[in-house]
Structures are given as structure tokens and as C-alpha cells.
Design a protein around this nucleic acid. Structure first.
Length: 672
RNA sequence: GCCGAAGUAGCUCAGUGGUAGAGCAUCGCAUUCGUAAUGCGAGGGUCGCGGGUUCAAAUCCCGCCUUCGGCUCCA
């Protein structure tokens, strides 16, 4: 049994690796294509290593590549580097750039390389008897037979390295260390911990400074910071890690988004459904998610009488687990028969008497929607059936992986499952994409790309027949092409049960976030034995499309907060208008306007505190309220409002009627 | 989960063994003011939690929890 079903969907819905890194070995040709800035940064890594060795000669270096925003070097030594050491290391690096050392390439034989590593010379400033370059020895062994082995030398430092490098160390003066952390050698946990020191470097001082200014900007828009300042959400220790409490302001944001998405779904013929937060284990045994993804789920909820029964029997943990995981022989043979192969092995079959039953917090919504589809017979005339739900799911993400709203343990997907005929797949995929496009355009998130995941032609790791795949892949490809945004086709990136389309959205500071996905699935309809009655009056298997265009409301709102830097367009703003009085002489007039705006459904508050107008404006600006209405005696006399916008400044005096018309239109049209 | 750092008032932070501090926010009083901070006063903390060392712990030691930066993982 291989991993099944919504795996990739979930991956896309939840994952965001802004800087994906590959530990795969690059070929010499690929290395030679290093860009100028990568070359510079890679040289900086060597200079940093040189500096570290001058201070701590025992350091053993592993791997030091350039990365998206800088470079790092992994190493091992007795001293633990802390940010307090940065100044010292940077000072030494500065000396090395001043020395303007030449980077010299030297081809060496495997034997020479090994000898240099044995003596500790490789990745060192001199021979270090008794301290062989262990990582370099291992790296040499990983170089394929016949490939040129080379080293680079700058000053006394010689490193096993394919290059390329800048000519002289003098080029590397605009460099700064950024952080220190730990890593595993080649990402392998069993190989022990290394220290990883990160830095960044640019060709010019201006670019280096701009990078840090940009970083500061990024920190200001961090959704965790803004979430607190604007009171959008709260995470409470006593509730649990990774569980979002949507506070009133955040709830407005989410509700408005859901209303918007819901409106579009109705236009596209979706049916709204609601399903519970738990389901019986059998449901997930059928889908294949239990017990295979147990580690990523909250543990099963076991029924009280069953718990008592096993406690009475004196049954241990291991036995309990086995009984939970197991199925009856009838269950297994049914499923195996439907699949046409053994997907549940003999080892999981147990005497029904012994089986334990229970519930699972749902880790995805598909099985529940499938059961709704299956609850009544369908004619081909009814298809496609499109079931949508803002469905909350729970997953046991590792504690170290949790992050604000973007990586959580309970989240609500803007989920839907479409059940259609094979011929309808193309049109339905297209429909899903157009929905995404409408929503992203409305939010001004225009900087995104699309990835079409196709099956790996050289692999047999996909189920279903090739003709089906060809059709579905063509549908995805064509659908993506209609979007009018760049898309890439990535063979081998499909889920094994069907091709998919992913949305990768770039936020304002250039970070990429994988949010939604549209995914064709031929497997779950089989496992759940779904059917529809065809024109030939015979049962046919529907095709399922899973789609969650925004992934989760949590992640999407997190990205949205950063996208707008907290300055939401009026239709999304938790507080749209704040009335600010100049003195209490206009309190009655202000109350009148307040009531009038509230009456038409605008989210408005009244600030008639004894503060000066400057202070009131300042507070409203800090709260990022789109509209401020400044009311004084002049306005009261003319039944007008002095309008100030948080981003556009003073917009002058308008009649109350004009303002109302403008703002209601702005909200209704969801203007940016 | 792993490595490292951090956790002091609602928020941002100061306080390195000797009576817990500031600014903002909150509350009260005065002020009635025209586009980013009016003045004065008051309240507010089991210094993340639990142990230990000490005459004495926010401060030193140990364990745990949470957060952050990475790593690993992500159906």
C-alpha cells in the first residue's frame, strides 16, 4: 500500500517553504551556471570559513552553498557560535577581504584529495594532525567516479570545492552575518548536529543596506505582529499550540472573505454542505488515511465502553494500537476487490470481536463529502455535483513547524469536491481556475504563478490507466494556459492518483506561498465505490476533483494581512469608518451620522472622547481604519463630513449623502 | 521532534543576588480643542510554570511549557 489520496492536496494547502532548497548533488555543468551573485556569496562562505578557522582552528566544515538570500556554511566545532560572536567573525572576514586573496582553482586526483582530507588540510588553514576533515572525506566519496575533483584556495584556506568563485576576496566586502542555527549533515538526522552560520552579501553597499531595510519592512508586516496590533487573532497556550482563536476583528475579515467566496461559488453552481468535525475510523480506513498517516493526526477518540472493555482485559498500548489499525476480513476483501489489487494486507486483518472502534478528528473533508454524494443515486444528468464547505480539519503538525496563522493544527479549508464524468473534467478544472482568478484579482494578488503537476513518465508510481491520465493532464494543461499567467509543467509532481494545478502566490515582499490546488482524483471514487447511472442505464465511476483554491482561511488570511500590511480595503476592514468629533458641541450631530451609517450596514464607530482631534486621527491611523470622518461645527451646520482616508489623506468635505453613496458602492464593488 | 535564543504590567522594553521599573494603553479629574500624541493623578505584576542553591532569587542551577530563528517533517 502506497501513500494515498489527498496527500498532495494537503501538502499544497498547508505548505509554504519560501526558500526551497535542494540537497541533491549538482552536476559540474549546473554549478558552472552559478549567477554572479551566487558566485559572490559562495566566495563569502569560503571567507567566513577562513575567518572561523583563524579564531577556532578545530572547526570542521561540511557544506557551504549560496542560497536565495545569502549563503551559509555548516560546520562542527567545540565552541558554540552565538550572535555575540558575529562581530568578531565579521572583523576577521573584513581583514581577509582587505588582504584581497586570490581564489585559485586546482584540479586534484581522488588520492590527493583524500590525503589532504585525512591530514585535516582540506577545509583547514594548515594540516591538522589528529583532526581529519571528516565531512570532506565523505563528500569526496560522494563525487561520482570520473568526475573532476577540485579545490579552491584563498590565502591559507583550501577547500574541496567545484567552484566557481570570484577572482579575489576584495570583491566580498559588502557582507553581513545574519543568523546562526543548527542543521543535520546532509539533512540526515542520524548524522549528528552541525552549526549553521548564515550571512548575506551583495555587490554594492547600497544593495546590502536595501536588503536590510527590506527585511525591516517585512518584519513590520509580519502577520503575527499585525495580528496582535490590530487584534485579528489570538493563540492561547491554554487552548493549545497552533489553534487559532479568531477575535472579533479577524472574524470580520474571515467572514467577509467567506461571503465573497460563497457568492462566487453559488454563481458557479456549487451546493453548500455542512459536515461534522469527526468521523468514524472506518471512514478513514476506507479512504486509506488511517492508520498510515497516524503521526500527522490527532490520536483517535476511542469510545468509552470500548476503553473500559480493553482496560478490563488488561490490554496494553501496543495491543490497543493494533486493534485500532486492524480491519475485518470482510472489510479488507471488499476494498481489495474494488481496487483490483491488495491495498489492505493480510497483516491488518483481525477477528471482528477484537476490533476497536473510534472516531478521528477529520484531517480532510473528502470522505464526508463523498458520503453525501453516495447518500443517493445519481444520474449522469445530475453531474457534475459540486459540494462546497468551509470545512475545519485538524492535523498534528510538529511543534517546531507551527507558525502564526500560516502553519497551524486546526484550520478551515475553502474546500469543495466535484463529482463528474470523465468528459466533464476539463470544463470543471477550468471552472475551478476561473474562481481562483476572480478572487485573487479582486484582492489585488496578481503576482502568482501556476504549476501543473504531471505524472512521471518514467515511473510506474501512478494508478489508473494511461489514457485517463493523458486526458486529465491535457485538461489541466489547457486550463492553466487559459489563465493568462505564467505556468510551468512539472513532470513527476502529480499526485500518484491524478494530475494537479497549484497556485504559488508571491506576497509584496517577494516571498512565495503555496496556497491552493486543484486536483483530479481517480482513486477515492473506487475506494468508496461511487457511481452514477449513465445514458446506457449502467453504473459508471465518477471522477472526483478536489479543490481548495486558497488552502485554508488561516493561511490565506495570514498572507492577506501581510499582503495589505494591515491596510485592508474597505470591504474587508473590520472597522470601516471612525467618526471623530472635534468638540462635544457636535456630539448630537455625530450620533446622528453614526446611526445613519450603521443603518446601511457599514462598520462604523464613534470616538467622542475628550481628546484633541490630532490624537484621535493618530489613533485611527494606527488602527488602520480606512475612513475617518472629522466632525466639527462647520460640518454640523452644513450636514457634511470632512473625510480623511488612512492612505489617501484628507479628501475634503462632502455631503453626508455623497459620502454614503461613495462608500457603499466601494464596499459593494469590493474595490481595492 | 532536534539545535540555539527568548519569556518581567494589556503592549514595547529596562532591571546580573538585597523593598519590581519606564513609556504607551486603561481608569479618574481638568481641558472643548480643525487633520499623526493636552495636562495632572491613580490603578495594574506569584518576573512563563515547578523544583533546588542562598540569610536573601526576576537575577544562579535543574526540569517542564510556550514563542522565535533554523533543521527535519508535512496524507
Amino acid at each position: 500500500m502506497t501513500k494515498i489520496s489527498c496527500r498532495k492536496i494537503r501538502d499544497m494547502r498547508q505548505t509554504a517553504h519560501p526558500f526551497p532548497m535542494s540537497t541533491e548533488r549538482k552536476t559540474l555543468e549546473e554549478r558552472a551556471q552559478m549567477s554572479d551573485i551566487e558566485r559572490l556569496r559562495h566566495s563569502c562562505a569560503h571567507i567566513m570559513a577562513t575567518a572561523i578557522l583563524r579564531i577556532w582552528p578545530d572547526a570542521q566544515f561540511a557544506y557551504g552553498p549560496p542560497i536565495e538570500n545569502g549563503f551559509y556554511y555548516d560546520f562542527q566545532m567545540a565552541h558554540r557560535v552565538t550572535p555575540d560572536d558575529f562581530e568578531k567573525i565579521e572583523a576577521e572576514m573584513k581583514k581577509i577581504t582587505k588582504e584581497n586573496q586570490k581564489f585559485e582553482w586546482k584540479g586534484i586526483s581522488r588520492e590527493e584529495a583524500k590525503a589532504m582530507a585525512e591530514s585535516g588540510r582540506l577545509g583547514g588553514l594548515s594540516e591538522r594532525p589528529g583532526n581529519p576533515s571528516v565531512f570532506k572525506l565523505d563528500l569526496i566519496d560522494k563525487i561520482p567516479e570520473g568526475e573532476q575533483i577540485s579545490c579552491f584556495q584563498n590565502g591559507d584556506f583550501i577547500d574541496l570545492c567545484a567552484g566557481p568563485h570570484v577572482g579575489y576576496s576584495g570583491k566580498c566586502k559588502n557582507v553581513k552575518l545574519t543568523s546562526v542555527s543548527s542543521s543535520f549533515y546532509l539533512g540526515d538526522e542520524s548524522k549528528g548536529q552541525l552549526q549553521r552560520l548564515y550571512g548575506t552579501a551583495f555587490p554594492s553597499k547600497e544593495e546590502l543596506e536595501a536588503y536590510f531595510v527590506n527585511l525591516e519592512e517585512a518584519k513590520k508586516r509580519d502577520h503575527r505582529k499585525l495580528g496582535k496590533e490590530l487584534k485579528l487573532f489570538h493563540i492561547d497556550e491554554d487552548v493549545g499550540q497552533g489553534l487559532i482563536l479568531w477575535t472579533p476583528n479577524g472574524a470580520v475579515l474571515r467572514q467577509e472573505l467567506q461571503n465573497f467566496i460563497g457568492e462566487e461559488l453559488r454563481k458557479q453552481g456549487y451546493s453548500q454542505v455542512f459536515t461534522p468535525h469527526i468521523g468514524k475510523l472506518a471512514l478513514y480506513k476506507t479512504s486509506g488515511h488511517f492508520p498510515y498517516y497516524k503521526d500527522a493526526q490527532f490520536p483517535a477518540i476511542i469510545e468509552q465502553d470500548q476503553l473500559e472493555k480493553i482496560a478490563h482485559e488488561g490490554c496494553g498500548c501496543a495491543e490497543m494500537t493494533a486493534r485500532l489499525d486492524a480491519v475485518s476480513s470482510q472489510f479488507a476483501s471488499q476494498l481489495n476487490e474494488r481496487a483490483g489489487r491488495e491495498i489492505i494486507g493480510q497483516d491488518r486483518i483481525m477477528d471482528p470481536e477484537k476490533l476497536l472502534d473510534g472516531f478521528l478528528l477529520k484531517p480532510m473533508n473528502c470522505p464526508h463529502h463523498i458520503k453525501i454524494y453516495g447518500s443517493q443515486p445519481h444520474s449522469y444528468r445530475d453531474l457534475p455535483v459540486r459540494l462546497a464547505e468551509f470545512g475545519t480539519v485538524y492535523r498534528w503538525e510538529q511543534s517546531g513547524e507551527l507558525n502564526g496563522m500560516t502553519r497551524v493544527r486546526g484550520f478551515t479549508q475553502d474546500d469543495a469536491h466535484l463529482f463528474c464524468t470523465e468528459d466533464q473534467v476539463a470544463a470543471e478544472v477550468l471552472g475551478c481556475l476561473s474562481l481562483v482568478k476572480i478572487v485573487l484579482n479582486t484582492l489585488g494578488m496578481t503576482d502568482y504563478r501556476v504549476r501543473v503537476g504531471l505524472r512521471d513518465p518514467d515511473s510506474s508510481k501512478f494508478t489508473g490507466n494511461p489514457a485517463q491520465w493523458d486526458k486529465a493532464e491535457a485538461a489541466c494543461r489547457e486550463a492553466a494556459a487559459t489563465l493568462g499567467v505564467p505556468f510551468t509543467e512539472e513532470p513527476g509532481e502529480a499526485a500518484f492518483y491524478g494530475p494537479k494545478i497549484d497556485f504559488v502566490i508571491k506576497d509584496v515582499i517577494g516571498r512565495e506561498w503555496q496556497l491552493g490546488t486543484v486536483q483530479v482524483d481517480y482513486v477515492l471514487p473506487v475506494r468508496f465505490d461511487l457511481s452514477y447511472n449513465g445514458p446506457d442505464n449502467k453504473p459508471h465511476r465518477p471522477v472526483m476533483i478536489h479543490r481548495a483554491p486558497f488552502g485554508s482561511m488561516e493561511r490565506f488570511c495570514g498572507v492577506l494581512i501581510e499582503h495589505f500590511a494591515g491596510h485592508f480595503p474597505t470591504w474587508l476592514a473590520p472597522e470601516q469608518i471612525r467618526i471623530l468629533t472635534i468638540s462635544e458641541k457636535v456630539d448630537a450631530f455625530a450620533e446622528e451620522i453614526f446611526a445613519q451609517l450603521k443603518e446601511v450596514g457599514l462598520r462604523v464607530t464613534l470616538n467622542n472622547d475628550a481628546d484633541k482631534i490630532g490624537a484621535k486621527i493618530r489613533n485611527a491611523q494606527l488602527d488602520k481604519i480606512p475612513y475617518m470622518l472629522v466632525l466639527g461645527e462647520k460640518e454640523a451646520a452644513a450636514n457634511s463630513v470632512a473625510v480623511r482616508h488612512s492612505k489617501r489623506g484628507d479628501l475634503g468635505v462632502k455631503s453626508v449623502a455623497d459620502f454614503l453613496t461613495e462608500v457603499t458602492a466601494e464596499v459593494k464593488e469590493r474595490k481595492l
